[in-house]
Every structure is written in C-alpha cells, then in structure tokens.
Design a binder for these strands. Structure first.
Lengths: 108, 108
DNA sequence: GGCCATTACGGGACACGTAAAGATG
DNA sequence: CATCTTTACGTGTCCCGTAATGGCC
C-alpha cells in the first residue's frame, strides 16, 4: 500500500509545480524529494509527472492521484486529534439521538 | 501524522484480540508488532490496548482509532488501483450519465 | 509449566543531506 | 550561463527477526 509520506510529497510537488519549491515548503532538500516521487512512480508503475525545463506538471495519472491523495491525507490528519479527544473523554461517549417527542419533554 | 503501517498493525491486533494471532495474520513476528503498537501509543500519548492475561482489548481510545483507521485504510487501498486504471485509460476520462430515455434507444 | 506480551540485540531497508553531474532554454 | 532535476555517496533511523525475560493463569 502507498504510504502517506509519499502522498504528502507528491501532493506538495504537484501543487507547487516545482520540486525545488515543494522541497522548501516541506522543509527538506530537492534530491530526497525527487527520489520520493520516483519511488512512488516505480510503485505505481506509471509516470505521475511530466518533467519540463521549468518545473514539473502532473500527468493524467498524476491528477487522479492528486485528488485521491488529498482525500486520504485530509482524513488521516483528523485521526490523531479524534483519538486524543476520545482519550480525554471529550468524545466517544457522545450519543446523538433523534426522536419525535423529545422536544416536548422539559429537562429534569 | 500517523503512518498507514502502524494503522494496519493496530487494526489487526484490535480485531484479533491477540498480538500473537495478529502477527500471524500479518505475516510477521510478535515482538515487532508489539513495538509497532507501542510506538503508536507513544505517538498519540494514550493507551490503546488493555493488556489482559489472555490477549489484549481495545480501550475507549482504541475503539475510536479502530473505526477511523478502517476508514482511512479502506480509502487508501483504493488509491493505487484507481491511479493505475487512469494511467491505462480505463478511468479518468470516463463519464457516467443518467437519463430517463436512454434505455429506449437501440445501440447503433 | 504453558501462554502471551515485552525487552535485548544484531542486520537490512529506506530516507535524509551534501556534493557533483545532466538537461534544457 | 542559469535553472531545475537527477545521480552518487555517506549517515541516521526505523523496522524486522531471533533469543531471552517477565507476568499471569
């Protein structure tokens, strides 16, 4: 399965259009980032970027991955907080109910 | 961010109720799997499993993570195939339409 | 004593950073 | 020549597997 690390790298590159610029945004150097994307292409068996003289451009497959990757990363980024909140008791015990008559009952 | 590797490990353990059994299912040994879950607990800063004399049991936070992790993993597992299909041209350009009359039209 | 989880230790894979090389306008 | 990407090389970290230790019926 694709690891999130590689997805993050690819999304940054695809959004910036330059490996160099994306590396700066991710706080790393260009060479490791370039290899990360290459590894992803090798894993998927297809090119994700068109290498241009001035930067890169996502291929068709790259665009598809960009969309999917954003969805997965967005969901994954919320997991950590959700679990911690549950551990603190702020969530997880919350039950939400719908009835047709609850609104008629006074509290207490 | 939590890596998918750790999520897969935790889901297997939580579902099996035994680190030993989950390790067999994942094709690995118990010690690395035990450490993987410990690493996840350290990352989240809360216990995910209650260690019992016969196996383990998810805590409240563990149950919350189990649910989230399944959703993320399910989504991530489809990414790879989706991108490869797009690269082969089987998807990405596919438009699906619904009409009220298409069924009345003969092919050709 | 048997079962299960954990710690200890050595080996391999992967990613990073720096430095040098290749490609293109 | 300037810009951007890629390859080369050495280092550090993380994970794995085997072996030994700890806790609880």
């Amino acid at each position: 399965m694709i690891e999130l690390h590689r997805l993050r790298a690819f999304v940054a590159v695809a959004e910036e259009g330059h490996i160099t610029r994306a590396a700066g945004k991710l706080g790393m150097q260009q060479p490791p980032l370039s290899r990360l994307v290459q590894g992803l292409e090798a894993q998927l068996g297809c090119r994700l970027l068109r290498r241009m003289p001035r930067g890169v451009e996502p291929t068709e497959a790259g665009l598809a991955l960009l969309e999917e990757a954003r969805a997965v990363l967005a969901r994954a980024s919320r997991v950590e907080d959700a679990v911690r909140r549950t551990a603190r008791g702020e969530a997880g015990r919350l039950a939400v109910g719908f009835t047709s008559s609850a609104a008629l009952h006074p509290f207490g």
